[in-house]
Simulated scan of single mutants.
Amino acid sequence: MERNIARIALFAALIAALGFLPAVTLGFGVPITAQSLAVMLCGTVLGAKRGALAVLLFLALVALGLPLLAGGRGGLGVFASPTVGFLVGFPIAAFTTGLIVERWKGPLPLVASVASIIGGVVVLYVFGAMGLALMLGKTFPEAALLVTAFIPGDIIKAVLAGGITSGLAKARPDSLLSRA
């Protein structure tokens, strides 16, 4: 139990740490950031439930006002911005990614990469596009078209998540809770 709590907190801290890497904010108010890589890793390493809990802990800290999002943003105001769909989608993306890794017993680098694409890209984009449509007054197809700007970088992040997860499994097999 205590180890689970520590790992959840550690991965919440990882999401926060990747928010300190320089972000590029696009014209419609959503930054390109490394935090989605950490969300993918929450699922691939911790599994569905623990991964989602790590992201929820991170979002709770953001809601309390800690400036943990890319660009030093935090507070309840971020949940009324164009990024709201992505923030709401973060825990669902981590859960989906983790569920796929837990259930699909294929080669880990492939499974973790595909799970990251499905959960950390496809699922996250659906929520992100819904948030953009709501906040920017656009239709869902218009918002979905805006989100396509993130595809190349997020595919790279998904492959990185697969490689990092596989490397972690080789170096410390007991730390990969998604395959426990």
Rank of each mutant, 00 (worst) to 15 (best):
L87K: 04
L87D: 05
L87P: 04
V88E: 05
G89M: 08
G89Y: 00
G89H: 00
G89I: 10
G89A: 03
G89N: 04
F90E: 06
F90W: 14
P91C: 14
I92W: 06
I92T: 09
I92Q: 05
I92C: 01
A93N: 06
A93M: 08
A93S: 10
A94N: 01
F95A: 13
F95Y: 15
F95C: 00
F95Q: 05
F95K: 12
T97S: 09
T97E: 06
T97M: 10
T97R: 08
G98K: 04
G98V: 00
L99V: 08
L99G: 12
I100V: 14
I100S: 08
V101R: 00
V101G: 00
E102L: 08
E102V: 07
W104T: 12
W104L: 15
W104K: 11
K105D: 15
K105H: 12
G106W: 11
G106Q: 08
G106N: 07
G106T: 06
P107G: 09
P107E: 14
P107W: 09
P107H: 11
P107Y: 08
L108C: 05
P109I: 13
P109M: 15
P109N: 13
P109E: 11
P109G: 11
L110W: 09
L110T: 06
L110S: 02
L110R: 07
V111Q: 07
V111C: 04
V111L: 05
V111H: 10
A112G: 08
A112Y: 01
V114Y: 01
V114K: 09
V114G: 04
V114M: 01
V114R: 04
A115L: 12
A115H: 08
A115E: 12
S116L: 02
S116G: 11
S116F: 01
S116W: 03
S116P: 00
I117R: 05
I117A: 10
I117K: 02
I117Y: 03
I118D: 04
G119T: 06
G119F: 04
G119H: 00
G120F: 00
G120D: 04
V121R: 13
V121Q: 12
V121G: 14
V121F: 15
V122K: 02
V123N: 00
V123H: 05
L124V: 15
L124F: 06
L124P: 03
L124H: 12
L124D: 07
